[in-house]
Structures are given as structure tokens and as C-alpha cells.
Measured scan of single mutants.
Amino acid sequence: HNLTITQGKLFFHYNPKLCLSEIHKMEEVSGTKGRQERNDIALKTNGDQASCENELLKFSYIRTSFDKILLRWEPYWPPDFRDLLGFMLFYKEAPYQNVTEFDGQDACGSNSWTVVDIDPPLRSNDPKSQNHPGWLMRGLKPWTQYAIFVKTLVTFSDERRTYGAKSDIIYVQTDATNPSVPLDPISVSNSSSQIILKWKPPSDPNGNITHYLVFWERQAEDSELFELDYCLKGLKLPSRTWSPPFESEDSQKHNQSEYEDSAGECCSCPKTDSQILKELEESSFRKTFEDYLHNVVFVPRKTSSGTGAEDPRPSRKRRSLGDVGNVTVAVPTVAAFPNTSSTSVPTSPEEHRPFEKVVNKESLVISGLRHFTGYRIELQACNQDTPEERCSVAAYVSARTMPEAKADDIVGPVTHEIFENNVVHLMWQEPKEPNGLIVLYEVSYRRYGDEELHLCVSRKHFALERGCRLRGLSPGNYSVRIRATSLAGNGSWTEPTYFYVTDYLDVPSNIA
């Protein structure tokens, strides 16, 4: 807008934040220059609390790290170098490059900038070799853009010569660093050979998330399962459950009422301010606690030095998902009996873990797994792929695949051998790939016309006998059925096997 004052003059007093240069501009645009008398524009009460600059400061050096910015700028000295009290560095987070010096300023003089007072450097006698002032900004957020400017702080001049310097606002972004852990990993099994893994992005990506790394490792069953005799009275049979499938998407929606109208769909109840505040506090606490764990609990591995020492970490090797089922080394339970199943799973520490690289999504279907087997899954978020990966501390989750139908069934015939004193040795093959492992066998036998009897055969007993022995049988026709019990439950009964026990007292003698 054009402003013209045809008559009258300007009068400025007691404006401590208004620089004289701005008042002189007002004289020019209003056409009143030359009308004012000496005392109409006070030299001592206008701009006496402001830094009124008329020179431009330029930054000469900028260096960044993930949490620091090192700045240096060209030296500046007023005509009387004693008038320079120091520099004021202003900075704040700036997602967009549209910041002005006066953003967030209120009537009390406060604003949204963080201000650092910096002492002037030592003055050199040689004007050509003056030290460049600077400042190291610490405690910054990774991968965050900051708006920065600097200006001088000078003393009051009796001659009211307006001098000083100020830089333009520059924008500097800190470097990326390792992201925080992925949030809320959930693993479920939808079949006997697959596990579905879902997660949420890290709360602090500290860069642009480029991919996720998912490692999985087959877990050995508890050692007590191999040692305890679950045929003993009072000892509860062990059981394991597989990871249940995901709930429906509708039930997972946030901010939804727990109660549904019987007449149909209901609208979600909005969260109160107290609920939102509580969630923010919980989120802040979780982030602080995660940072504490990362800094205190997890110790970084030592990389190899120039002395030739090897990095103890196993090298990563990509495998196809079809090879995942046989990740671990199978060892027989008892070496003397080769027909026992290889369900003991000690994992070799030198073995390469299978892994998958996930790009542009937060889910993965891990296939080719062994049925009813526990897996430990390790999830890392990465925001750099080359020249070397920059990934987060791992988040861990466990899951067990679903049982395989008929995996616990005894394959092959049940054979028998009759000894003296009416002892019958029953023999059968253990299931080759049971659900988890076989903890015991149930032997059901009966003599024709009598009630059915049951015998429990422990895992250890089966390994020693290759089956079991029935003792003290009365003469007669017998039928026997056997079924295995694994961590997933009972298998199917075998087809009945028949044998006849004679009275050993009636056996004919070869003595003449």
C-alpha cells in the first residue's frame, strides 16, 4: 500500500525493539523526510534493546553428524571492536523451508527459537588472519532439518551509529543413524509349514526405512522333555500350542467401542483428552525405555581390526524358502538304536541362519518350516543398504507352526516275539517326523474274553527296548493296539495285532 503524509511529521519514542533503520525507511515511504526535528525521533529510546544489523554474515563451514552440527561463519568486528559482546545463534526444527525470524513471537518477546549466546573469538592483530567464530550444536535429532541463523550482539553506541551483522536463515539436516526397533511384532501360524509375521514401523526411523531383515531359527525343545518319565503317576503330560491366527481386521481397528449394538453396526467412541494424553505418555515412556535398553543392555560386537582377528559373527547367506525346513542338525536320541526319531534339535552355532529381506511392506510369510516346531524370529529395521547396512537392534518374537495331521501315527506293522515265561516283546517304529517329539506310547492289549488293559511306555523305555515287553501273560489269544502321544496330543491307534500265548508248562520236552 502507498502511504503519503502531505502535512505533519513523524514522532517515535520509547520503541526499544524498533531499529532506527526501520524508522528511516518509514520517513522515505511516507514522504516526511526532512520535516522531523532532532528530538522527534529519539536516538536513545528507539532500538536500544534490539540488534540492528546492516551487514550480512556468511557461514564459512558446515559439518553434520547424526546428532551434531558444527558451524563456522566469517569474522565480524565493528569499528570499535570492544562493542562486540558476542553472537546469538538461533535454531529450531523446520520440516519445511518457510521459516521466518519472527515465527511464534508474542507480545512478551518470546519466540519459538532456541538461542545460544556465543563469546567472540580472540581478536588477531592481523586483519587478514582473524579467527572464524563458530559453535557445535549438540543433542539434535537424527535425520531432522533445522533452520539456523546467527547475528551479532553489540553494545549501545553513544554516537548512535547503527552497526551489526546478521546471516540469512539456512537449512541444515542432520545425518541418518540406526533406527529404533520395529514396533509390535506379531507372529502367527496359518499352516503346519508357515508363519505369518506382521509389525509396525519404528517410532524413530532416523532416516528413510529402506528394508527390513527377518531372521528365523528353529528352537530346540526343553531338555526336561527328553529326561522326564511322563508315565509316572502324578506327572502331567506336557503340551505345546501353536500360535493362533490373526483376529479379523475389524476387531483390530483402534479407537473402536468394545460393545456392539445388537441391531447392527455401531460407531466408534472418540477417545477423551485424558485417554489420548495417557497414550502419549505411555508411548514416550516406551521410547525412553527402549533407548535405555539399547544403550545399557546391548553391547556392540567388536569388529575385526587390522591384526587379522576374525569377526566372530557368522556370515549372512541367503537361502531359498524351500530350504528352511531342514535348518537344524538332527541327532538321534540314543545312538545305539537307529530307529528312534531325530527330534532332539541342538543347533550348531556355526550354522548360517536363513533370512529374508523385506522391502516396502511390514509383513512376511515364512514358508518351508517344520510342522509343530518353535521358531525364534528376529526382526531388524534398516535405513541404508549400501555401502553397508545400517540397521536397528533386533526385536524378537516366537511362534510355533501348526501340527501336521497323521504325523504322530505309527507307520509300519507292530511285530512281536514270544519268549519263555510268557513274555512277549512288542516292537514298532517311532514316527519319523512327529509333531514336536514323542513323549510316550500307549499300549492297549486284551486277552479274548477279558477286559482291555493299558500300559504306558516312556520315551526312554522305548529307546532301550525298541518297544516294550509284556510279562506274566496268561495263555490265550491276544490283540494289541499302540498309539503315540506327542507334544500336540495323541496320534491314531494302530491296526490290531494278534498273537497267541501258550502255557509254557505244557511245552513238550526233548528229553527222552
Rank of each mutant, 00 (worst) to 15 (best):
S251D: 13
S251L: 12
G264S: 04
C468D: 00
W242R: 04
T373I: 09
E362L: 07
V411L: 13
Y396H: 12
R469F: 13
G489E: 02
E247F: 12
A335M: 14
L437S: 00
S239L: 13
A394M: 07
T485L: 14
F337N: 09
K460Y: 12
Q380G: 15
V329H: 03
G264C: 02
W216F: 12
S257H: 05
W493T: 05
T497M: 03
H416C: 11
G308Y: 06
K302Q: 10
N422S: 07
A336N: 05
F215T: 06
V327I: 06
E420Q: 14
S474Y: 10
G412Q: 05
C382L: 00
E281W: 02
G449F: 14
V424S: 01
G234T: 05
V358K: 09
G472M: 08
A394E: 05
P270V: 09
P314Y: 12
G476T: 00
D409K: 09
P314V: 03
N339Y: 08
I418G: 09
K361L: 12
I438M: 12
Q384W: 05
E258S: 10
S274P: 15
S320D: 08
F285L: 07
E388R: 14
V501F: 12
Y375V: 06
E388S: 05
D229F: 15
Y212A: 10
G306R: 13
L440A: 11
N339H: 08
W216D: 00
R481C: 06
G207M: 09
K278V: 15
V359H: 06
S274Y: 14
N339C: 07
L487A: 12
D222Q: 13
R390E: 01
L379A: 08
L379F: 06
V297G: 13
V439G: 09
Y445F: 03
L455N: 06
K361T: 08
G322E: 04
R390Q: 11
Y396C: 07
R447F: 04
Y441C: 02
A405T: 13
P431F: 02
F226V: 12
P387W: 14
F355D: 03
Q252F: 15
V327G: 09
Q219M: 03
T272H: 07
L505C: 04
L228K: 04
Y478N: 00
S305L: 10
L379G: 00
N255G: 13
N339W: 10
R218E: 10
G325Q: 15
V397W: 14
E227Q: 08
G264M: 14
F499V: 10
E282D: 05
H425Q: 08
L369E: 04
V359C: 08
F419T: 06
P300I: 10
Y498A: 11
Q275E: 14
F298H: 08
T241F: 14
P496Q: 02
A263D: 13
G374A: 03
K302C: 05
E290P: 07
A395G: 12
A407S: 07
S479H: 06
K406E: 09
S492R: 04
E442P: 01
E452Q: 15
R471W: 07
V334T: 13
V424K: 01
L470P: 00
R390K: 15
A484T: 12
P431Y: 01
T303S: 07
D250S: 09
P245S: 08
A394H: 12
R286I: 04
L280P: 15
T502Q: 13
T343N: 14
K357N: 11
L470K: 00
S257F: 13
H254M: 08
S304V: 13
R218F: 02
N339Q: 13
R318E: 13
G368I: 04
L213Q: 12
F285K: 06
D273V: 07
R466V: 07
N326P: 14
V297I: 08
L440G: 04
P431N: 04
N421Y: 06
L426I: 15
E310R: 03
S315L: 11
A263M: 10
F298N: 15
G472I: 04
L232M: 12
S239V: 12
V214D: 00
S304Y: 08
A394G: 08
P300C: 15
G449H: 01
G374D: 09
S367K: 11
R313P: 14
L321D: 02
N360S: 09
H454N: 01
S223K: 08
G234D: 09
S486P: 01
L213S: 08
F298G: 11
K432Q: 04
T328V: 08
N477H: 04
K317F: 11
E350K: 13
L505G: 09
S243C: 06
S348R: 14
E389F: 14
T347V: 06
D250P: 11
S262T: 10
E495T: 07
F215S: 10
V480Y: 04
F285P: 11
S257T: 06
E227R: 09
S392L: 00
F355W: 13
T272L: 09
F215L: 10
S243R: 07
A399G: 11
V299L: 03
H425F: 08
D323Q: 15
S239P: 14
H454G: 02
G489W: 14
W216N: 05
E451L: 15
V345R: 10
R447H: 15
R471T: 09
L277S: 11
G264A: 15
Y212P: 00
E433M: 04
D450V: 12
C382Q: 00
